[in-house]
């Protein structure tokens, strides 16, 4: 009895091991590691792009979804071959410091400022971005910051700087969390927060928040791909990384990115750069 139980347990384990191999993707010609921001994974964009890329080149992409800050750090340590991030200043510095070979803007969307539907900003809509942020600080309106060195956090700091304000008011909350949790906190605390449109469209059904302000050129959210220089020991991976970036710029890929999400949300989540006129710009 005891032996048979132990045997059954071992059997389950062995079957699991066996199945685990079976569930492994078929061996690919090469494998590259892509470190990216959570918004591209959470929206499902990469789950569409990676199989496309593999079908075309036979190269497998392992996706590590982290904040932009951590993605850049992964690149610095050589743990990722390609980065797909959205913090222009930090990215340019990354390349300038010699960690990246090339940086290519690939697509963009934009940020929106969210707030509670019955908050002061909803009842009396702000005229401009400066007005919106200025009133948050001046009237001490609750505002949740990502505070996690992500692309969204970088953007938010940039915006405060652009209106020469330090967000030091009492109701400025630092979540230190990803976008979804930050949205939840903002929802529960009836606070304003900054988010990218892709995440917002994917999650808007969950929350009572609504868009308070959008459309300022400063709210643009450009994503760029970077080929990591690496340690020089694996030229094959660097080649594969270049291929991935070329793939992102291909016309068919751009079409796919443009169409992505339209069936589900009624509007696109990402807008490819450098395509047909008007496509790179949020209408």
């Amino acid at each position: 009895m005891r032996l048979s139980l132990a045997g059954a347990a071992s059997l389950v384990w062995l079957i699991a091991i066996g199945c685990m191999e079976q569930f492994s993707p078929k061996p690919a010609a090469a494998t590259i590691t892509l470190a990216t921001t959570t918004s591209t994974q959470d929206s499902g964009l990469l789950e569409m792009l990676c199989p496309m890329f593999r079908a075309q080149t036979g190269i497998d992409v392992k996706v590590i979804a982290v904040g932009t800050g951590q993605a850049l750090e992964l690149g610095r340590r050589g743990d990722a071959d390609v980065l797909l991030t959205h913090a222009r200043v930090a990215e340019e510095e990354f390349v300038r410091q010699g960690y990246g070979i090339v940086r290519v803007p690939v697509f963009q969307n934009d940020f929106v400022l969210l707030g509670p539907p019955d908050g002061a900003l909803s009842l009396n809509p702000p005229k401009s971005l400066d007005d919106a942020f200025g009133r948050c600080a001046a009237e001490n309106l609750p505002f949740v910051s990502r505070d996690d060195d992500s692309g969204t956090h970088h953007k938010e700091k940039e915006l405060w700087q652009s209106i020469s304000l330090e967000p030091t008011f009492a109701n400025y909350l630092r979540s230190g969390s990803g976008m979804a949790r930050t949205l939840r906190i903002a929802d529960e605390r009836r606070a304003c927060t900054l988010t990218d449109r892709a995440t917002w469209l994917a999650l808007s059904g969950e929350f009572h928040l609504r868009v308070i302000f959008e459309g300022d050129p400063r709210l643009k959210n450009p994503y760029a791909a970077i080929v990591v220089k690496g340690d020089g020991q694996s030229p094959a991976r660097v080649r594969a990384a270049h291929q991935f970036i070329e793939f992102l710029q291909k016309e068919t890929t751009r079409q796919a990115i443009q169409e992505f999400g339209k069936d589900q949300y009624g509007e696109g989540l990402f807008f490819p750069d450098g395509g047909a006129p008007g496509a790179g710009q949020k209408p």
């Binding site: 569930f23 492994s24 993707p25 959470d42 392992k62 590590i64 999650l203």
Partner: peptide
Amino acid sequence: GNIGGHTRVMTTAIVLETSRG
């Protein structure tokens, strides 16, 4: 790294699905 099909296990999948809403 929570890579789908490679290293995504139940707990990390829960984290991911939660963050996706």
